[in-house]
Simulated scan of single mutants.
Amino acid sequence: MHGWIVYNGHLKSPKFLDYAELIQEAAQQKGISMTIYPNHELLSTMSGEGMSITGADTAEHPDFVIFGDKDILLARQLESMGIPVYNSADAIEACDHKGVMYQRLAQKQLPIPETILGPKIFIKTDELHLTHLINEGVKLGFPLIIKEAYGSFGEQVYLVHTKEEMMNKLRSIHNRPFLLQQFISASYGRDVRLNVVGEEVVASMLRYSEHDFRANVTTGGKMEPYSPSDAEKELAIRASKAIGTTFCGVDLLYDEYGQPVICEVNGNAQIRNIYECTGINVAEKMMVHVMKQHSKKGGEGI
């Protein structure tokens, strides 16, 4: 077996290459060779004769691809060539746009904060027609959350406390996809991350912040190992299935009754922090899953 690992080569943080290297090392320990590619070295080309990938040393197709990026068209191109991609392009797209993600979770009637999608506006304008949206936002109550549809690591997420704050934030972001969301105040600065591989929760940690409503480690949060209940595991797996992910991180908040509420499903969940927190190497679990999938197909691809 030989696979590729794709990451975004233009993102400056070393965590993206680190993710790829963790997977490569875990694969090698299982006897699987993996080549790491930044996405800009894999160019999708099309003609009347079909589709292909152009890049250094890409003449031989891999048995599978671990896709640690959000370059959806590249993932779709690989799939169109018959190469299994984890996660699928469809799942990457659903996780990448938070509006799509919440639609899919709501479609399966899974517990999420009450959410209102902002209208698509396209352009930056002073002539905003958001009276109805603002009225609905007020009904959610303050403080409330405003999220840009595209964002990671707790960024592009805003907590607003008044109608004036809400209007000011909408004036600044309205030309980008966004949504309004109920704030789960009982979970202020606290959430649980559950890493799902296939249909199993393989690692979990509690994240908390003493200074921020977001618990993300990237924004200064702390972490400790967490033992989820069977109900929490089941909810995380159902969330993963609703989105269509093979590998993901499911973040849970907790309401005033202590009941879990799905905050987000992250299709490109980083695995270094949870490794350091729990000692569990999620990359190894991912490779075991890939090998099982390969075995089911009789070794002829995955």
Rank of each mutant, 00 (worst) to 15 (best):
G151Q: 13
K98C: 07
A106S: 06
L74W: 01
Q109T: 07
P62E: 08
E60M: 07
S33C: 14
T35R: 11
H61Q: 13
S33Q: 15
D71L: 03
F153Q: 15
T35I: 09
C95E: 10
M34R: 02
I123G: 09
G50S: 02
I121Q: 14
L140Y: 06
M81V: 08
P111Y: 02
L128Q: 04
G31K: 12
Y150A: 14
S152G: 11
K120E: 14
I32Q: 07
Q103T: 14
G55A: 00
F153W: 12
G50F: 00
I116T: 06
D69V: 06
L105I: 12
F64V: 04
K98M: 09
F122N: 15
T131I: 02
E136K: 08
P84A: 10
E155F: 11
L144K: 03
L78F: 03
M81K: 09
A75V: 03
K139L: 13
H132F: 08
I66E: 01
K120R: 15
T115E: 04
Q103S: 13
P84N: 11
G50D: 02
H97Q: 12
L117P: 04
I116N: 04
P113Q: 05
A26L: 11
I123S: 12
E79P: 01
I112N: 01
L128C: 05
P38K: 00
F122E: 14
K124I: 10
Q107G: 06
P143I: 09
I134A: 07
L43Y: 03
F142E: 12
E148K: 13
G141A: 13
D69E: 08
S52Q: 10
L130S: 03
I134H: 06
G31S: 12
P62I: 11
L133Y: 10
T54W: 05
I134Q: 07
S152H: 11
D126H: 15
P84Q: 09
Y102L: 05
Q107P: 01
L43F: 04
D126G: 13
E25F: 09
L43D: 08
L110C: 03
I92N: 01
L78Y: 02
S80V: 06
L133A: 11
